[in-house]
Design a protein around this nucleic acid. Structure first.
Lengths: 249, 249
DNA sequence: CGTTCGTTTGACGGATATCAATGATTGTGG
DNA sequence: CCACAATCATTGATATCCGTCAAACGAACG
């Protein structure tokens, strides 16, 4: 079935944690969609108010229930947003990629974070206090508009997720979740699209509202159908068209 | 079981459609959280850029796929946001109450609306073109912050909905959906909380990701347990504590 | 009074959660 | 370099929840 068997095709998380030198910071800032259109001087000003920190793989950046003091902009790596249910199991709300804003509860005067941000890979995030953030928004209205655009887009995305979860069979949900992930964090590898995420079966189950076993069974079926290739903590999409077909019908 | 049987306890939608006189408009504007803190002069300025329209019950305000030209602020009534799945059935994404912003795709440069806004009751909405809206945001940074707060809050809400849909049985989802609705549109009626919404079983099914029949069965069970009282297009919560119990456990 | 729409209930089969065990991959320490 | 432990993934068997089909019922409206 699968042309060949590979081991961990994911690019190694070789970036050194806890090291984000100033050029990297500035680059990250200018790449973040909020600041892309600002003059370099303004970016420097904003940079002065932000702090940078690197995080190792599988590390919490902020935890649910903790005091919400800072906002974050993801500069490098992938981060998952998880929200605990009252029964103890977590739901994977969203996967963040560089440029995404998170921890925005802080800007709202919320006392605590409603969810936990957890690194999937080695990551680097910029943080800014809620007060400073609001000051920047007032000072640069175009930034406020850009942030608003981003959050609105995320809201759309969340609504799409709601639609996804509310409809269809496990196979539908898994297929369309894989497509969404491919769009967000997929990397073309010749014919296939490799999901550059160390996602486990429990992670996928938490995203699709099902169980580890059902996800495994579904992926096995898709693998036998030649639509995807999977391994330990990685998934590659070999037939995007057919996958979209399965998600839709 | 139920102490007494009532017919349509919902307050009649007696407001005259298509009539939103200027004082009502100004009141609505100042009540909308975006403009609450602005001086009256600023509110008048903004009002000048907005148009008002009344809508009859069960009427679309904007349809999915239509050109996204305007944003709306709900001034009166209740509106549901629905998004069609590719299979034809709709998913009820959110229920809007006065003060809520919707149609915000227009502000993002999206060509078309990603969802349909449909009135549940007689309603009144203010509309403003995307261009004018952005102008207002630049002119009044505090408004931009307020709007950002609102959208962020809605994002949180959407994430909560995702969590709800991704976990538990139909009974869990129905119970927690009822609680969310009670918080948003509930009206205390002595001991009980009446949901001031003409929600049908299909509507609830579209919110909880299940079928009309399953919703009906679940509600019947809850009714027999004395937790709620139901009728044609209305639901009342008689034992909020127990309902929360069912949603949690 | 009859029609219509919303709701309820029953029966049945299939999808899926659950329980349980096995297999595969990675990393660790000898 | 190998063996072991730990983690992740897979597969099977079974019970059950829930979606589907079908029919009857009740309230609202003209």
């Amino acid at each position: 079935m699968a042309p060949e068997r590979r081991h961990t095709p994911l690019a190694p998380s070789c970036a050194t944690p806890h090291a984000c030198p100033r050029p990297v910071r500035l680059h990250a800032l200018s790449r973040a969609r909020y600041f892309a259109d600002l003059p370099p001087a303004a970016i420097e000003t904003i940079d002065a108010r932000m702090r940078v920190r690197g995080y190792a793989e599988d590390t919490p950046i902020h935890r649910v229930g903790a005091a919400a003091t800072h906002l974050y902009v993801l500069a490098e790596g992938k981060v998952k947003l998880i929200r605990p249910t009252l029964e103890g199991d977590d739901v994977l709300i969203d996967v963040l990629t560089p440029g995404d804003l998170f921890g925005s509860a802080a800007a709202l005067g919320h006392a605590t974070y409603p969810d936990t941000a957890h690194t999937l890979t080695v990551a680097c995030a910029l943080s800014i206090s809620a007060r400073d953030f609001r000051a920047v928004l007032v000072e640069y209205p175009q930034v406020a508009l850009a942030v608003l655009d981003d959050v609105t887009q995320r809201l759309e995305q969340a609504h799409t997720t709601v639609r996804r979860l509310a409809s269809g069979t496990v196979e539908h949900r898994v297929a369309s979740t894989l497509l969404a992930l491919a769009d967000k964090a997929g990397e073309p590898r010749g014919e296939e699209i490799l999901l550059q995420l160390p996602l486990t079966r429990p992670d996928l189950a938490a995203m699709t509202g099902t169980t580890t076993e059902s996800v495994s069974r579904t992926l096995s079926r898709l693998r036998r159908a030649g639509v995807i290739a999977t391994g330990r903590r990685w998934i590659s999409i070999t037939d995007r068209g057919r996958l979209a077909e399965l998600a839709r019908h």
